[in-house]
């Protein structure tokens, strides 16, 4: 079943929280809604869950109109940042909760619970209460609970944000593998670009209630469509068309004839900028920031700050003069 959203709008009074959202989620697809806080990504997820209403547009799941189906009848699974386990129920009771609501027989429930416990590798914790588990374990229980009733769609609302870095990295790949194995279409909300890029089949980049760009993680990173995406995902230097031409960038392919793409900006990733010490060049090293595997260098290039990266420790110091050149095929034209 695929989820199809066309022209969705959501208002809070006169404030428009979602503007004309078009999105489809295919079978087996893992979609990440990525954006800064307040961009509407959580509102969109909640509207899909049926926890928020919407005023304009259409939402269909496999031909059924979701506007007429309430949250409890949509048959989705949801996982929140705050785990939200029933504090008075054991792990097994939490996981079997949806099946119990569906009046399944105790044998069916316990079989499915055992299956889910194995899936999230918590077989030995069936009789524990939530407060006896770590954050990561609690979140795995929440995921198992959401999956137990075989949801048509799995919704994850920043599921990893409350966990510490190591647990988060582990659970990230675990969720991804589970989703691939079960083939459940999944939508995850996150503000963490690394999370979105590593987990998703499709990244939906949102800002101010609008979708800025939809694409695979590599498309989003290498070919950002708008200035916002170029800025929000990774870091970029945004150059004016004139400056970009000076670096030898080709004008945008889709620019109207005669125009040199003056309404565009040229987004340049720091790793695409090659930097070489050169006493006669106009570049001046403003600062060098050591980040471990790379060093980030800010270069003052004729009054404009350009970001570059080196993988080795740079063989020049702050204040040195350098020359810059671009990797072949570097950069992307974005809408300003």
């Amino acid at each position: 079943m695929t989820l199809d959203i066309r022209g969705l709008s959501k208002f809070y009074g006169t404030y428009q929280a979602l503007k004309d959202i078009d999105l489809s989620v295919g079978e087996n697809e893992f979609v990440c809604l990525l954006g800064p806080s307040g961009c509407g990504k959580t509102t969109l997820l909640r509207a899909i869950a049926g926890l928020e209403s919407f005023e304009g547009g259409q939402m269909m799941l496999g031909g059924r109109d979701l506007a007429t189906i309430g949250a409890r009848d949509r048959g989705f699974g949801i996982v929140f940042q705050s785990y939200s386990l029933f504090p008075h129920m054991t792990v097994a009771q939490n996981i079997g909760y949806g099946l119990k609501l569906r009046r399944k027989s105790p044998t069916q429930i316990s079989a499915r619970v055992a299956e889910m416990l194995a899936l999230v590798r918590l077989e030995d914790f069936a009789d524990r209460l939530p407060w006896q588990l770590s954050g990561g374990q609690q979140q795995r229980v929440a995921i198992a609970r959401a999956l137990a009733a075989e949801p048509a769609l799995l919704l994850l609302d920043e599921p990893l944000s409350a966990l510490d870095a190591r647990v988060r990295a582990g659970l990230r790949s675990e969720i991804r593998q589970m989703q691939k194995r079960l083939g459940i279409p999944t939508i995850m909300v996150t503000h963490d670009q690394e999370e979105a890029l590593t987990m998703a089949d499709k990244v939906v980049c949102m800002s101010a209630g609008r979708i800025e760009q939809i694409g695979s993680p590599s498309e989003i990173y290498t070919r950002p469509a708008t200035r916002f995406v170029a800025d929000f995902v990774g870091s970029s230097t945004l150059l004016s068309p004139a400056r970009a031409r000076a670096f030898g960038a080709a004008p945008p392919a889709d620019a109207p004839a005669g125009s040199q793409g003056d309404d565009r900006l040229f987004a340049l990733r720091p790793e695409d900028v090659l930097i070489r010490p050169d006493a006669s060049a106009p570049g001046l090293v403003r600062s060098i920031t050591f980040l471990g595997n790379v060093s980030r260098i800010e270069v003052d290039w004729q009054g404009e700050i350009i970001l570059a990266e080196t993988h080795r420790l740079p063989e020049f110091a702050e204040g040195a003069t350098v020359s810059l050149s671009l990797q072949p095929g570097a950069g992307a034209w974005v809408r300003a």
């Binding site: 949250a71 409890r72 939200s84 909760y97 609501l101």
Partner: peptide, 11 residues
């Protein structure tokens, strides 16, 4: 979220 979980699960 706890209540919303119940609703989404079908309660």
């Amino acid at each position: 979220p706890l209540e919303e979980t119940v609703t989404t699960i079908g309660g």
